[in-house]
Amino acid sequence: MNKSTLPLPPPVFLLIGVVAVSFSSILIKWSEAPASILGMYRLLFTVLLFLPFLPWREMKILFKNSTLKEWLMLAVSGVFLGLHFLFWMESFSHTTVASAMILTALEPVFVVIGAYFLFKEKTSKVGIISILIAVSGSVIIASGDIGVSKTALYGDLLSVLGTVAVSVHMLAGQELCRKMPSIIYSFAVFLIGGLVLFVYNICTNVSLIQYDIKDWWIFLLLALIPNIFGHALFNWLLKYVDATTISMAILGEPIGAIILAYFLLGEMTTVSQLVGGMIVMISVMIFLKYKAAELEKVMALQEKSNIS
Rank of each mutant, 00 (worst) to 15 (best):
A243Q: 06
M40Q: 01
T95F: 06
V47Y: 04
L208N: 10
A300E: 15
F263H: 09
N227T: 09
T245D: 04
L68G: 12
T269K: 13
E70F: 00
Y185C: 05
K125N: 14
T151Y: 07
M89A: 15
F45L: 06
S308V: 15
F50L: 13
P55C: 07
F13E: 11
L195N: 11
V18W: 04
V47Q: 05
V21Q: 01
I37W: 10
G256S: 05
V79P: 04
L158T: 02
W236D: 08
G144V: 06
Q302V: 11
V139W: 08
K304I: 15
F263G: 00
N205W: 11
V135R: 02
P10C: 03
A188L: 08
F234W: 13
M40P: 01
W236H: 14
N227V: 09
G193Q: 05
S31K: 03
C203P: 13
V164I: 11
I213K: 13
V19Y: 08
P52H: 04
S308K: 14
V196A: 09
V148I: 11
S93W: 11
Y290K: 11
G114R: 09
I286N: 10
I183Y: 05
E294D: 14
G230D: 02
M73D: 15
L171E: 07
I209G: 12
N2F: 10
L15P: 07
G162E: 01
N201Y: 07
P108N: 07
R57G: 13
A243C: 09
S93I: 15
V21S: 00
I113H: 10
V280A: 06
L132S: 06
L295S: 15
E121L: 04
V166M: 08
S36R: 05
S182F: 12
S22L: 02
S149K: 03
T95C: 02
L176E: 08
N306W: 13
I228K: 10
V79W: 10
S124K: 04
L157P: 08
V168Y: 04
K150H: 10
V199W: 07
R42G: 08
V206Y: 05
Y240P: 05
A100W: 00
V196E: 09
G276T: 00
G256E: 01
L153K: 01
S305G: 14
Q273Y: 07
I202L: 15
S99F: 05
L118P: 11
L44I: 03
E294Q: 14
W216E: 05
I255H: 03
K304A: 15
G276H: 02
G137N: 00
S272L: 03
M101G: 12
V284M: 06
C203W: 14
L295N: 15
T5Q: 14
S36W: 02
I133W: 01
Q174H: 12
I131G: 06
S247T: 01
T151V: 12
S24G: 04
P226T: 03
L62Q: 13
F219C: 02
V189H: 05
A300C: 12
V160E: 01
I146G: 15
S36D: 10
M89C: 10
F219V: 03
A172W: 08
E303M: 12
L8E: 06
K122I: 11
F50T: 06
I129W: 08
F80G: 00
E253I: 05
I133T: 00
G256R: 02
L176K: 11
L238W: 08
N205P: 08
I225P: 00
H231C: 09
S149E: 01
G82K: 09
G137V: 00
